[in-house]
Design a protein around this nucleic acid. Structure first.
Length: 842
RNA sequence: GCGGACGUGGCGGAAUGGUAGACGCUACAGACUUAAAAUCUGUUAUCAGAAAUGGUGUGCGGGUUCGAGUCCCGCCGUCCGCACCA
């Protein structure tokens, strides 16, 4: 090979075809090699791959290729999270069919992914919008239904009266639909729910074992599940048989109670409001409040005194007033609280406003009286005071004492309350998995028999009017009841797309035709050894997937409960913004990177050569126009340079700032490596220093890749490259060049294959083995140690690696610089760290 | 408000409690070239100095230690998550 430049435009396609033809990355199924299941979160087929995908998939790809080279059976699949609203929006805006739009996007994006040269087993590709996938999902749904893990109940949804559709909470902005701008109504609909709360305890406990997940994600999962232990008790309404149920985590403070408050939506408040216009007004006022952090922070605690009173459960003659209050939430606990102002800030604010008693019941050290003064509630530790039989107990002792008594006397019960709600999965949408249910007037909700699955989506639908096209379809929803045979209605709701992504990793591992999965294959491949994706899925997707896996294990379909052994959340790709102000009240005008020329100090717009403002480095977004299209840069530099850039510089969990200079540097490295490929000379002779460096690099790059510290692995490869460049021709140098290419092969696989072939190999480097390390060469035979005087570096000296502490000390004392620093002072102590340093203390 | 992460050159970032700034980018100087590109060599924390060298230096203030970017305490700042959660 005499070309002195590497030409990716030829090499990239050549090797991608070669891998395809040889089925290099097909998952080996008949082998006893250790398994490695590497998975990146599958993309939504929006139309184009963006640079964030490239970063995500490159990381997984390096790991997958490395695992293959180190003798693992690798499962590294790819698919499409293909149901969802954007397809329906496109249908409404452009008049295209969601299916056609989605499938065309998949074709485009698959071609883009192929250009990245990913080591994927395309034989296992799946798209959630195809009946071959969602039909099995319907079967799983019915199995969970049969097992009692699915139920139907009426619940309140956000209803957009213009678009005739249900909106997710995230789609309601300031009380209006995000698309229509219409005021959103609360509407009650019958919906399907999954009993995720049955698994709350187990999902929470399981978080403890996820020691290869980021702490941040584990914490977010714990907070989302939100376990609170306490007492549910009833306050009897004075003079009636009715009561108000209240949940508290602080039963120990029951003697500090000074009021009971219920939510505006509480049945009691609603009932009383029927005959009390002022209360109606107050309830309306409560609903106006904003929900942003700042608003809640400053929102005044407001209450409406109902005039009712309740009996204190520990003293029937002690009556407490009942308020309707704006800070009590109907959807947490029982929708009612008792207020203990001395030991809860919110209650204290409320009590001060409405001039209610503030009774101290916890004191640390000296009890300075019954009435609590000050504006900050005391929530710290201490002993119980002013509380009759509880006096002197610790908080924890008092909690159990009150719970025990409540249970004994029958007015309360120790309870655990969860923040986690059951998972509502009904969506009034077309482009999703049809819920396989038929509603019969006589038999109720009847499952579609398994033999009739999949229930496929009709293709002949229109989007010219708002609402769910399945509802309007002339024939689809008419079905006979599977039980009694009478004419009945097919369920027209579809499943939340989070259901689709809750088991795709199982289907990748095992895809029989007649069943969702095969338990033996699941046992072989699961859990996923390394899952890589964005932090935005830290809560919902990961929690639902953990739940779904447990649910399937619960009904005996599979034998694994935690789907992802190790999770990595990668950072975003960011870019500078370029803009010009447009004057008062107008947003700035943004420019794309290819419209400007970057200079050392700023940037100018090519169109008029005048400067533009260089803004902050932020996440790439269409609105800020700071985007780089992967296809464009691959066209320009070839994919290896782009992959190299994705791995260089920034640690993978942090954001990666894209820059023109950065990709140029990577392009230079690709060419540097290629020049070395041409320098394998057939020379003879040793080069001990270079061989040592080579073995150190093999070991370091391996451990860096396993730790996903790709930026460090890249730095090691740069070092080895530099060392080779400086070395004179020798057999050792030739070997170092070959090793360099093997080590870099997972990162820049096209160049590596080209080099491999250039050297006369007829195999693929993708199938080659990772170089072995000569452990004996990892240690140097000469070392440089630091000599400090009173902890300050004064000299460095070179010694044989096996120098003992006495030799080190002697060599340190012999240094003129060290003697000058000691300056004749008395030596109090000498610290010698073998192989490291000598510290002389004076 | 609660919880978490982070803070190191012009920039991205290295650094099991043991020589701070590896590696890359940028910039500058030089070589090659008619010239440019490409490539190569060198310099690139800061202050003083011609240099040798010396002082300072990992957000700020304390502490532990022979020795702290790293551990502990208290601040400041940035980013992220959650939230009237009873």
């Amino acid at each position: 090979m005499t070309n002195d430049r590497f030409n990716p435009h030829v090499a990239d396609a050549r090797w991608q075809s070669a891998w395809d033809a040889a089925q290099t990355f097909a998952t080996p199924t008949d082998t006893d090699k250790p398994k490695a299941y590497i998975l990146e979160m599958f993309p939504y087929p929006s139309g184009r791959i963006h640079i964030g995908h490239v970063r995500n998939y490159t990381m997984g790809d390096v790991l997958a290729r490395y695992k293959k080279m180190t003798g693992h059976a690798v499962l590294h699949p790819m698919g499409w999270d293909a149901f969802g609203m954007p397809a329906e929006n496109a249908a409404m805006e452009k008049g295209v069919h969601p299916g056609g739009w989605t499938r065309a996007n998949i074709a485009n994006m698959k071609a883009q992914l192929k250009r990245i040269g990913l080591a994927l087993d395309w034989g296992r590709e799946l798209a959630t919008c195809e009946p071959q996938y969602y039909g099995h999902e319907q079967a799983l749904f019915l199995k969970l239904l049969a097992a009692g893990l699915v139920y139907r109940k009426e619940s309140t949804v956000n209803w957009d009266p213009v678009d005739n559709t249900v909106l997710a909470n995230e789609q309601v902005i300031d009380g209006r639909g995000w698309r229509s701008g219409a005021l959103v109504e609360k509407r009650k609909l019958n919906q399907w729910f999954l009993r995720i709360t049955d698994f709350a305890e187990d999902l929470l406990a399981g978080v403890q074992g996820l020691d290869q997940w980021p702490d941040k994600v584990r914490l977010m999962q714990e907070n989302w599940i939100g376990k609170s232990q306490g007492l549910q008790l009833t306050f009897n309404l004075a003079g009636t048989v009715d009561g108000i149920d209240v949940f508290t985590t602080r039963p120990d403070t029951l003697y500090g109670a000074s009021f009971v408050a219920v939510a505006a939506d509480h049945p009691l408040a609603q009932r009383m409001a029927e005959n009390a216009p002022e209360l109606q007004d107050f309830i309306a006022l409560c609903k106006q409040g904003g929900t942003t952090a700042a608003e809640l922070e400053t929102a005044e605690k407001l209450g409406f005194n109902t005039g009712l009173s309740v009996e204190h459960p520990l003293d029937k003659d002690w009556h407490l007033p009942v308020y309707v209050a704006n800070f009590v939430l109907m959807d947490y606990g029982t929708g009612a609280v008792f207020g203990c102002p001395a030991h809860d800030q919110r209650d204290l604010d409320f009590a001060r406003k409405y001039d209610l008693p503030v009774r101290r019941v916890v004191a640390e050290g000296e009890d300075d009286g019954l009435t609590y003064r000050g504006d900050e509630a005391y929530t710290g530790p201490g002993r119980i005071v002013n509380s009759h039989f509880l006096n002197g107990m610790t908080i924890d002792e008092a909690k159990s004492a009150v719970i025990t008594r409540a249970e004994h006397e029958g007015w309360g019960k120790g309870t655990t309350v969860w923040r986690l709600r059951d998972w509502g999965v009904s969506r009034q949408r077309y482009w999703g998995t049809p819920i396989p249910i038929i509603h019969c007037d006589s038999c109720g909700a009847v499952p579609v028999p398994e033999s009739q699955l999949p229930v496929t989506l009709p293709e002949d639908v229109t989007f010219d009017t708002p609402g769910n096209p399945l509802d309007r379809h002339p024939t689809w929803k008419h079905a006979d009841c599977p039980k009694c045979g009478k004419a009945a209605r097919r369920e027209t709701d579809t499943l939340d797309t989070f259901v689709d992504s809750s088991w795709y990793f199982l289907r990748f591992a095992s895809q029989p035709d007649g069943a969702p999965n095969d338990a033996i294959d699941i046992a072989r491949w699961l859990p996923v050894d390394q899952y890589i994706g964005g932090i935005e899925h830290a809560i919902l997707h990961l929690l639902y997937a953990r739940f779904w896996t447990r649910a399937l294990a619960h009904i005996g379909l599979i034998d694994v409960v935690e789907p992802f052994a190790s999770l990595f959340t990668q950072g975003m790709v960011t870019h500078e913004t370029y803009s010009r102000p447009q004057g008062e009240g107008l947003p700035p005008l943004y420019f794309t990177p290819d419209e400007i020329t970057r200079t050392a100090t700023g940037a100018t717009l090519d169109a008029d050569n005048a400067p533009v403002e260089v803004g902050r480095i932020i996440k790439m977004s269409k609105s800020k126009k700071n985007v780089v299209d992967p296809d464009d840069i691959i066209d320009q530099y070839g994919v290896d340079a782009v992959r190299w850039f994705m791995l260089s510089d920034s640690p993978p969990e942090r954001d990666l700032p894209w820059s023109e200079a950065g990709i140029e540097g990577c392009w230079r490295f690709v060419q540097r490596a290629w020049r070395l490929v041409g320098q394998v000379s057939g020379a003879v002779g040793e080069d001990k220093a270079l061989t040592r460096k080579m073995h150190q690099t093999i070991a370091a790059v391996a451990s860096d890749i396993e730790a996903l510290s790709f930026n460090k692995a890249v730095a090691r490869l740069y070092e080895l490259t530099g060392a080779i460049e400086k070395a004179a021709p020798s057999a050792a140098r030739d070997e170092a060049i070959r090793t360099l290419i093997l080590l870099a092969a997972p990162m820049i696989p096209h160049l590596a294959e080209e080099a491999w072939a250039t050297w006369g190999n007829t195999t693929l480097i993708a199938d080659a083995a990772w170089p072995t390390v000569d452990e004996s060469l990892l240690v140097e035979d000469e070392i440089t140690i630091a000599v400090q005087v009173k902890g300050k570096l004064r000299d460095t000296i070179t010694l044989p690696a096996d120098a003992d502490t006495a030799a080190m000390e002697a060599a340190a004392m012999a240094s003129e610089k060290v003697q000058a620093a000691i300056g004749g002072a008395d030596i109090r102590k000498v610290i010698v760290v073998p192989g490291r340093l000598v510290n002389i203390v004076i």
